[in-house]
Write a protein that binds this DNA or RNA. Structure first.
Lengths: 336, 336
DNA sequence: ATGAAAGCGCTAACAG
DNA sequence: CTGTTAGCGCTTTCAT
């Protein structure tokens, strides 16, 4: 058994200094563009750096400065277009602020999240964005700033979310205004605070109008595997004339099931989703939905996190961003 | 201007050793589970670690071992379901092998890729997966193992891809077998080797049958913004009875355009995509497409990369994985 | 303007 | 089985 050679050999700052015939500290100053470095030294250093194709070791730097310039982003499911778009927005904002993203896919699985939390801690990320967290106490003794999205974690952790409750109300009111009478709600898993609030808003609005609403519960957000199996419990689906689905991608799977059964949308049944992710515009008919302000959510999360990272005072509270109705074809009154 | 406190204070191995009343090396041995540590010491260490909520600093460890246990993954567009699924597969395999993923979204932009390449180098990632790279010489003086997906980078870099050429041929042959006569191909940007090969395969197969094929070119993979604007140059779309689109998500946008114009699929026009990403099953009618073996691609890439990381001899060559036709509703012969 | 030296948190000989 | 020590690549006083 020979020795396995692992890892990368790259020249270091000492090598650069030696070859440039100057001191190590000067090179460091040059690299960080702070302190004084003579033009002559600059030229010499630059030359050697190019010759050796040298890149400073961000790890070693982070060990010393205790600032990794990295943000850990936990998403439950990168295949869900909504989280997908959110991750892109967050990546962009973070990059603008000089931070890189360490992306973690938790699959809404508590164990995976716990493991990733350890990974992020061990990598000394500057901050963590925990979306739809399934953990609580795991975050209690953490020394790292955290911003939660959707699910609350602990009292001392800021939570950002859309106004899901009112989104749910709007969804009902829209179906109601379209004269739907036999209404079904597909609700999300109980462990998703956001979809719970959508559920409650929808139900409360229905109660206000004295309308009864049936509902069935999905056990997960969206898995590619869901496409392989038919959605069961959907046998009696044709009795409804209005369906609210807890998110757009799940709505897409429902629409597919309906169309397979020959149910026409929006003629026989009207559909409304939630998120306003790009999938809704791709569907036919295009999906009426409740907009979550993705850009604003991403910006808010990153700003709040970086404020905390910088040690600024930030009031710990809920940041709730407005939702609004996006009317498209799945709830058209006329036949299409 | 006060001093901005940045970064995380976390206890270190010396603190643990002191509190446990033992030496620093013993703690290190305990942490890495190598070398001998007495039961008594183990207990004491464990206790202190829990009290202080200590997590070893992976950065400091990586500086010394020169092994970050991290793989950099460049994807052109995480919003494209295909790359989305591929990233998930790669993440899973990598995690099984003890590696974390540093995800970078290049947007098919050379400058972004260059920047990310610097970031990955500076973070001393153990290896890099460069999918659809827009760079060449930037990879030449790199000391890090690289595996390319789709686009070739340099002679000494392994490239993995699907059999895009034959996929293109299959696509034509399928439309031909469905009696399509006025065929259009939507081809991808010229800088995508994979879609170029699909284009050539399709064209060659058409030539073999003596069929003329029109084509138009998309300038990008898929952007959410494409949904806001209508696809232009599509005015005369109704004259075709068979369309091949270079990937599934672009096919989805085309289908949407067609449906908006009242063109019926597959009655008036048959559509075939490429990728077999989950979007195809979500569409209605469901999309006939060419399968790329995502699982196998992901596994192959990770295995080849880790072999190189471990210093094993790996022949530098092209790994081309088989494609196959997935027949669904957009090319049905009967009306639906 | 510059370099020597100490130290960030960790690992790995090596001597006991 | 354990602790001392040197050193990974970097930053930062501090004296020159």
């Amino acid at each position: 058994m020979g020795i396995i050679k692992v890892g990368i050999d790259m020249s270091n700052i000492r090598e650069i200094a030696k070859r440039a015939g100057i001191g190590i500290a000067t090179v460091s100053r040059y690299l960080n563009d702070n302190g004084y470095v003579s033009e002559e030294s600059k030229k010499k250093i630059q030359k050697v750096i190019e010759e050796l194709n040298y890149t400073p070791n961000a790890l070693a730097r982070a060990v010393f400065t205790k600032n990794s310039k990295t943000i850990g982003l936990m998403v439950p499911n990168i295949s869900n277009p909504f989280f997908n778009q959110l991750a892109s927005v967050i990546e962009d904002y973070a990059k603008n602020m000089g931070y890189n993203i360490f992306l973690c896919n938790t699959d809404d699985d508590k164990e995976k999240e716990k493991n990733y939390l350890e990974v992020l801690k061990s990598h000394r990320v500057a901050g963590i964005i925990a979306s739809r967290s399934q953990c609580k106490s795991e975050y209690s003794n953490i020394n790292i700033p955290v911003v939660a999205f959707e699910n609350h974690i602990l009292d001392n952790i800021i939570t950002v979310s859309s106004d899901n409750y009112n989104g749910g109300r709007m969804a009902f009111e829209h179906l109601y205004s379209k004269n739907c009478e036999r209404i079904l709600q597909i609700r999300g898993p109980k462990s998703f605070e956001a979809t719970e609030l959508r559920f409650e808003g929808f139900m409360d609005a229905a109660k206000d109008k004295g309308v009864e609403v049936s509902f069935i519960e999905f056990q997960s957000d969206f898995q590619v595997e869901m496409l392989e199996a038919d959605i069961n419990s959907m046998n009696d689906i044709s009795q409804y004339d209005g369906i609210f689905v807890f998110n757009d991608i799940a709505a897409a799977t429902i629409m597919r099931s309906l169309k397979k059964r020959g149910v026409t949308i929006p003629n026989q049944v009207k559909i409304i989703g939630f998120d306003n992710s790009f999938i809704g515009e791709l569907l036919y008919p295009s999906l009426t939905t409740i907009n979550q302000p993705i850009e604003e959510i991403g910006r808010t999360i990153v700003e709040l996190l970086i404020k905390q990272i910088n040690g600024d005072e930030v009031a710990v509270k809920d940041y709730i961003l407005q939702t609004k109705l996006i009317e498209r074809e799945t709830t058209l009154s006329l036949e299409i």
